[in-house]
């Protein structure tokens, strides 16, 4: 009979301290809101990227299929749409620089396009590195440096505001990266098989992390403040979470079209307010989740 209290304490302790069981969907993240194109009068068609403006507290969504950019406030309310007078051709990713210029990757003309809203000017720029044309795929901007993932070579190029390549972040074996993020003072790049390479900002590889092979088709990554990796599974329609050593911890979200489900998700991003945003190409929306 004396054993009973011990058993109860033991059970409670196990339940409290046990982490999420690998493979189980952990209800850590809950759906908060969706960014949709309908309020603009047109659904989004294959949105491809999200940019968050901390200062203005705005979201910008690249609505690739409709050749436009949409803006939303922090609460997810639609604000405006912009298509540079119909000049955008297959926009794919965007950032805003310190001077308020919008930089857009336009796949249709293979250009890193600068939009100066104040002067109503649009400049197209073809990039090259080592005598080869660069095919920009993903874009980040930190401290007046543009970081561009070149789809042709799979390396990340750091560009000054004059668009000259300052340095490159390349995979040692030449296999290349499918996505990258600049987080916590490092550049984190994901290889096609989901493994991560961490670079110092001067382009030197700092570490490589072999991730447990549980993701069907790794497509986008995020890195939490404590070094936890979030990997978006495009074909599996879910997000897999790994510890800093690459050990699989748990997965969440499921494939489908209903609210909170994923269909051909394309980008994963933390917003400045700690919410996890998933850009869904298939469902034409951005799903926002909070803890």
């Amino acid at each position: 009979m004396k054993k009973l209290p011990f058993l109860i304490i033991f059970t409670v302790a196990v339940l409290l301290f046990e982490g999420p069981i690998p493979g189980y969907t952990a209800a850590t993240w809950q759906w908060l809101s969706s960014l949709k194109g309908q309020p603009s009068g047109q659904s989004m068609l294959m949105p491809s990227a999200l940019y968050c403006d901390r200062t203005l507290e705005r979201y910008y969504v690249v609505d690739a299929g409709n050749n436009r950019l949409l803006s939303f406030n922090k609460d997810g309310e639609f604000l405006n749409e912009f298509n540079a007078n119909g000049q955008l051709q297959a926009p794919f990713d965007m950032v805003k620089d310190c001077e308020g210029h919008i930089w857009v990757i336009e796949k249709g003309r293979n250009s890193l396009t600068m939009i100066d809203l104040e002067n109503k000017a649009v400049e197209n720029h073809s990039l090259s590195f080592n005598g080869q044309t660069v095919f920009p795929e993903r874009l980040e901007q930190v401290d007046d440096i543009l970081y561009v993932l070149d789809k042709a070579t799979g390396q990340v190029l750091a560009l000054g505001m004059d668009l000259k390549v300052i340095r490159n972040f390349a995979c040692r074996d030449g296999t290349g990266f499918v996505d990258f993020k600049v987080r916590n003072g490092f550049l984190w790049a994901m290889e096609r098989d989901g493994n991560m390479v961490c670079f110092t900002m001067d382009g030197k590889p700092a570490s490589s992390i072999v991730m447990e092979d549980v993701v069907r088709f790794p497509y986008s990554l995020e890195v939490g403040p404590s070094g936890i990796f979030y990997v978006l599974d495009r074909h599996g329609g879910e997000v897999a979470v790994f510890d800093p050593e690459g050990r699989f911890r748990y997965r969440f979200l499921t494939p489908g079209q209903a609210r909170g489900r994923l269909y051909f998700p394309i980008e994963l991003k933390f917003d400045p307010w700690g919410r996890l945003c998933v850009v869904e190409e298939g469902n034409g929306r951005v799903e926002i989740f909070k803890r």
């Binding site: 796949k107 789809k151 070579t153 390349a170 096609r192």
Partner: peptide
């Protein structure tokens, strides 16, 4: 065909 939203340029050194 390559200058589209999704192409098979293959993120690798050398020639895709």
């Amino acid at each position: 065909e390559v200058l589209t939203l999704h192409s098979h340029l293959l993120e690798q050194e050398g020639c895709s």
